[in-house]
Design a protein around this nucleic acid. Structure first.
Lengths: 139, 139
DNA sequence: TATGACATGTGTAATGATTACACTTTTGTA
DNA sequence: TACAAAAGTGTAATCATTACACATGTCATA
């Protein structure tokens, strides 16, 4: 598993330092869409000298190379996701959990996920998100 | 025009103070998706004593009452839009302009815009956005 | 018209995620 | 072993937003 991730880093032109590998590994194994701070709090358990700047630097690198997407829904936090398949998100305004939303179920046209252009503009990134109260909190 | 907007405020349970009316008027007449700061810089020309806190308070009120939507695409800025019809946005990473995107053209299923529930969660807000380089900047 | 209570607006200070930057450590190669 | 480049660290700065205490405006009633 870890070796797979290491190869993915190498294949994408990122030298697989221990820090980068652990951060990427955490994101690949936790589908919780953590913030930079959440990642820091967890990964520091394995790397006690870890700096928060390293978290930001690494996330920026992973993001630029297309291995991780940054999800901006609220202006006061960015969430990170190692699942690069096209899907949407639902954020519960009560508990804060970010759920994945399969957009196929919404019959979203394939064009939304694959088109490189829209109204003449060149697309590099796309997001679909919802906010509200989740199933659990609604009771 | 101004009277129409005044009525809209009243109909939505917002007492139409001069400040609120001017801020709402600015948003209704400018389709530029301004930030709080941009609104402040413009409206202060008409109300020299205007405070930025009033901008934030008013935007919060308008947003809560459903007269304005706040668009979060980048984590360091929130844009505001008085056009409450369902549409997407495209942000140019070069010039920063936010374009409206008609989602009908993308054959987005009507369900995306009207459904109240998704995977059991109760939806109160939805956004579709794209990032990239716009037509003008791409040359 | 005066009074008083509540709504609205102001200005400054605090917050907090992110970034800038200078310095330190690690890595890989000769 | 030495050295240059890459990677990581820690502190300080940034900046949009929010908190909060005080000031002003509004409006109903006496």
């Amino acid at each position: 598993m870890v070796n797979d991730l290491k190869d993915i880093l190498i294949d994408n032109g990122i030298s697989p330092s221990y820090h980068r590998l652990k951060i990427y590994e955490y994101l690949a194994q936790n589908k919780t869409h953590p913030t930079a701070d959440m990642i820091y709090e967890e990964v520091i358990k394995q790397i006690p000298t870890l700096s928060k700047t390293t978290i930001y630097n690494t996330l920026k690198t992973l993001s630029e190379k297309g291995l991780v997407s940054s999800i901006t829904i609220e202006d006061n936090e960015v969430r990170y996701d190692a699942d690069m398949s096209f899907h949407g998100h639902f954020k519960c305004l009560d508990c804060g959990i970010l759920y994945d939303i399969e957009l196929d179920q919404m019959s979203i046209d394939k064009r939304l996920s694959i088109s490189r252009k829209i109204q003449g503009h060149h697309i590099t990134e796309r997001q679909v998100y919802f906010k509200g109260i989740c199933k659990k909190c609604h009771k």
